[in-house]
């Protein structure tokens, strides 16, 4: 095994060749620590790391750095998300140092949803650097021990660097090159956008494997279980970058309303089974949006328990 870059649990699980299983948790819209702890309690022991989102969909929430620190107190490993929308390079580097000092070892580098989607659409956005440059910056801080301006860092932050990939955005032909670019910039692992169009994802992974990208980076396939046909419809129409085939909406609508959640979980479980066998896929990122309490059951039925201890 090569030398670990961060020593995070997620890195160790992946480096040991296990099929990773990560979760996600949005911080509260307030300082409600008890609510956050309650949500996290469902994830404990069922996933290798939990993404702590950073003002997702541009809606103000508790900071991802504070949420991540609280998660560590609860005995879970955070994957600290950072978007380029809200911070300039000074704030980013400062928060990366702070995150590392608080025990955070994984981070996911993102552009961030545009503020027009959120609850402060009149805000000014930053985008001093973009997600590609953020990845490269975290790598420089970790591997060279230097800030962006080449000054030395006194105790560099050793982060396991994550990035996102959306195979379903356009232009499709370019997506695999963009992925390659993120890996070149320094991404150690990738978490994909929620996958619903399996046919397209199979093709994307084939291209990824053909380029040998899966050997340079761990790719975690994004899964979101649908709660009902209405959620599928909504996501299809209003969430940017989503590709939800009519066949899935039809499948959910094909069962009684009370059984739609179970049908959504069944589809997610079928996906997990296929990902376990799919060349180039190193794990699953389970995004059970505001459905954290279902994760124990999903993890159990997906046969990913117990999680490896490495």
């Amino acid at each position: 095994m090569t030398e670990l870059k961060s020593g995070s649990n997620l890195e160790k699980v992946l480096a040991a060749g296990h099929f990773a299983f990560t979760g996600e948790c949005g911080p509260p819209k307030g300082a409600n620590v008890e609510h956050l702890k309650e949500k996290l309690s469902h994830l404990k022991g069922n996933v290798d790391a939990v993404n702590m989102t950073d003002n997702q969909t541009a809606v103000v929430r508790m900071s991802s750095i504070a949420g991540s620190a609280l998660m560590i107190e609860e005995g879970l490993e955070p994957n600290f998300q950072m978007v380029c929308r809200d911070r300039n390079r000074l704030a980013m580097m400062s928060d990366i140092l702070g995150a590392y000092a608080l025990g955070i070892r994984n981070m996911l580098c993102l552009s961030g949803d545009h503020q027009t989607f959120g609850n402060h659409p009149d805000a000014k956005n930053v985008h001093d650097i973009d997600s590609m440059q953020l990845i490269a910056m975290v790598k420089k801080m970790r591997d060279e021990g230097k800030f962006l301006n080449d000054e030395d860092i006194d105790v560099p932050p050793k982060m396991f660097i994550g990035a996102a990939a959306n195979p379903f955005a356009d232009p499709y032909e370019y997506r695999v090159y963009r992925l390659a670019n993120k890996i070149e910039a320094g991404a150690d692992f990738i978490q994909t956008q929620c996958i619903f169009n399996m046919e397209k994802f199979r093709d994307f992974m084939k291209k990824t494997v053909d380029m040998g990208l899966h050997e340079k980076c761990y790719i975690l396939a994004g899964v979101t279980p649908m709660k009902n046909a209405g959620m599928a419809n909504f996501m299809s129409k209003f969430v940017p970058g989503m590709d939800i085939p009519d066949s899935l909406i039809k499948r959910l609508k094909g069962v009684d309303k009370k059984d739609q959640a179970e049908e959504g979980i069944k589809f997610a479980l079928e996906q997990v089974e296929e990902f376990k066998e799919m060349e180039g896929v190193a794990g699953v990122h389970m995004m059970a949006i505001e459905w954290e309490h279902m994760v124990p059951e999903i993890a159990k039925r997906a046969n990913v328990l117990p999680r490896p201890v490495v």
Binding site: S111, D113, H114, H127, D130, S131, M132, Q133, A164, A165, N166, A169, D170, P171, Y174, R178, N181, Q193, P240, G241
Partner: peptide
């Protein structure tokens, strides 16, 4: 973005 397009395209 200097390295686009983002996932919302």
């Amino acid at each position: 973005l200097l390295h686009g397009p983002c996932g919302g395209s």
